[in-house]
């Protein structure tokens, strides 16, 4: 089977582009959580994620450079100083089965695909896979694949506290609860978006991150909550996630929050439970299987 059937194009940046350009991409709502970094020859040089940018904004990355140049100076530095080496690079001639197995085995959200000359061809990520699994019933309940307990935060907490919690816990989102009732979701993308918007409003030359991070979580969180019941089929979760272009769903039982189901939970869970051949069949790509 040709892997290219699920390879999708995603935003890319150049190795010598400024870090600021990544903030401008990842702070836009509806964009992926990470971008691939390419050299001038279009070969893959690495990956940079929203978390890395948030860490820089919080002063938890680029410490020495920040001391010398200030945050603005750090954001003017090339991406090459901050990227993560790409370690999930596959040639375009591997099969979809292989990639699905690898992503599920290692709980990876994406792999990068290159041609025989190591030139970038695209990305296979959870969204691309789930997008091929719409309107299906799997016979697997949400509770069988969800993550729990979900990390929560109070709406009155500061954005600084929430951001540090996400960085320390290595998560991309927090569920916002008041008296155990879910009132919103805060993602790293929401935080980066807030930084961008506030900077534009203030027309500030220097990034006044401290002021920006004083905002309360409920000023930034997304209150349009789309959740799912834990006894529901994972097919419904996929339809909701892809249909609304969101990365996760809070999972509830009798009105109480019991966990969260994310895109990678769905891909890993379905592959592990149904097996790769069955998932490929459900994706409607088995006819071309070699």
């Amino acid at each position: 089977m040709n892997l290219l059937e699920v390879v999708c194009s995603r935003p890319v940046v150049g190795l010598n582009d400024k870090l600021l350009s990544v903030l401008n991409i990842l702070g836009r709502k509806g964009t992926p959580y990470r971008v691939v970094v390419l050299g001038e020859d279009f070969r893959v040089k690495g990956v940079i994620s929203g978390r890395r940018i948030l860490e820089v904004l919080l002063g938890r990355r680029g410490e020495a450079l920040k001391t010398r140049k200030g945050l603005r100076g750090v954001l003017e530095e090339p991406i090459s100083l901050f990227l993560d080496e790409a370690r999930n690079v596959f040639p375009e001639n591997v099969t979809l089965q292989t990639v699905l197995q690898y992503m599920a085995e290692n709980s990876l959200g994406y792999i990068i695909v290159v041609n025989e000359n190591h030139v970038f061809k695209g990305v296979v990520d959870e969204a691309a896979i789930l997008g091929k699994l719409l309107n299906k019933t799997f016979g697997i309940k949400v509770k069988d694949v969800m993550s729990y307990p979900a990390l929560t935060i109070n709406p009155e907490a500061s954005l600084l506290e929430a951001s540090n919690l996400m960085v320390d816990s290595r998560v991309r989102r927090l569920l916002v609860t008041r008296d155990d009732v879910l009132v919103g979701i805060l993602t790293i993308t929401d935080v980066l978006h807030h930084v961008l918007v506030r900077e534009r409003e203030m027309e500030s030359e220097l990034y006044d991150v401290e002021t920006i991070f004083k905002a309360k979580v409920d000023e930034v969180m997304n209150t349009n909550i789309i959740s799912i019941y834990l006894e529901k089929d994972v097919g419904e979760a996929i339809d909701k996630i892809i249909g609304n272009d969101i990365s996760c769903l809070p999972v509830s039982v009798e009105g109480k929050l019991s966990g969260v189901v994310c895109r990678i939970d769905l891909v890993s869970g379905i592959v592990k439970i149904k097996g790769v051949p069955e998932v490929v069949r459900m994706m409607g790509l088995e006819a071309k299987n070699e």
Partner: peptide
């Protein structure tokens, strides 16, 4: 593609840049 020492060296250099660069 993924596990040669040159990648490791770049990672170490970036770590050093983060701390004392």
């Amino acid at each position: 593609r993924n596990f040669l020492v040159t990648k490791d060296l770049k990672d170490y250099l970036r770590l050093h840049i983060e701390l004392v660069g």
